[in-house]
Design a protein around this nucleic acid. Sequence first.
DNA 1: AACTTTTCTTGTCCTATGGCAAGATTTATT
DNA 2: AATAAATCTTGCCATAGGACAAGAAAAGTT
Lengths: 196, 196
Amino acid sequence: MHQKPKPHFLNNIFNSNDFNKEELEAILPKFKQKAFKKNSFLLEQGKAANEYWFVESGFIRSFVLDIKGNDITTNFYSVDDIVIDWPSFFLRNPTRENIQALTDCVCWQLDFDTFQKLFHSIESFREQGRTTLVKSYFNLKSHNISMIADQAKERYENLLKENPLIIQNVSLKHIATYLGITDTSLSRIRKEISSE
Amino acid sequence: MHQKPKPHFLNNIFNSNDFNKEELEAILPKFKQKAFKKNSFLLEQGKAANEYWFVESGFIRSFVLDIKGNDITTNFYSVDDIVIDWPSFFLRNPTRENIQALTDCVCWQLDFDTFQKLFHSIESFREQGRTTLVKSYFNLKSHNISMIADQAKERYENLLKENPLIIQNVSLKHIATYLGITDTSLSRIRKEISSE
DNA sequence: AACTTTTCTTGTCCTATGGCAAGATTTATT
DNA sequence: AATAAATCTTGCCATAGGACAAGAAAAGTT
């Protein structure tokens, strides 16, 4: 008996539907595996993002500090997600965002210069990159509309439905600021839901 | 005496810092001038965006309808801005957004197929396209954070500072939904500011 | 296991903003 | 100019969610 070769994690991201063999051989080896300890930072405010990552395992969040020093969660990331500060990475300027591991994580990292070579030389790579960015834009806009159109309770229920893993793995406080409410309010919303 | 040749509007967007002569000659003639009457739609929900525009003159807004049928302004556009529904244009799927002229407008239009040819053949064109998208992402995220971190009054004052032309040319109701408040509240905020 | 720290819940009271409706003002239409 | 239709303001009252503080519970540390 022989063993099946274990497929590379990055084949979840780059697969043979969208890329031919040569392209995969040009792309996959450029990524470096990186482990992050719980609470370590992938990016800190004031620095420019020079890398991005795909998450193989673990949970991550990004956040900013507002004028009063309040910590506001801007996004959560888990398996297969891309972790990137789009503006800082592409505009090459210092960011306002912090990106922090919420658990021990394994990620696959690519740096800007390598990205640029792939982007300008492989059509399918730039098509996929553009698609990923645009989906990210779409999610951000949906979140934005939801902040205006929906009640806090509805926003929480949507997150629960779309992304149950987040709720199970992330502290209430971080979820609350992502939803634009206080942890106190979110606790009450949970109570109300559990008593239905 | 001879006259100076009037520069083409699109030279505001595509200039010789970022593009060489041949590139400009490949790009500029692909855009078609389009006039839109006040209240006419550039894009309607349910359709897929197959074009985008640069605004030479006039004011435009995009909006969505929420579940209860409330109209929520998602963005304003004026001179030199790009008007595009990024997700619909690139993912080629039906949109939730409506884009409507608030005044008579003159725009310059490019369609998807032509865009694709330029994007994949001209490096500087795709660099600029990516930059434009990423800036748009950045603005959206800033708006998002502001919705969570700032009071309605602060959001209004920021808009007033960043984009005074909008306030002078757009109805209070549309500005209010963009800021995530009712027209009633915005009217009170205005009153409060004017009495300071 | 004991202790410390962080997270979550709950109570009391407060504030920003919403809902509705009437009137005033401006803008569009005949 | 007269009328109609939007738009904007204002009053009154309602409510979602915030501020603060005290415990309870859970997680991390020695």
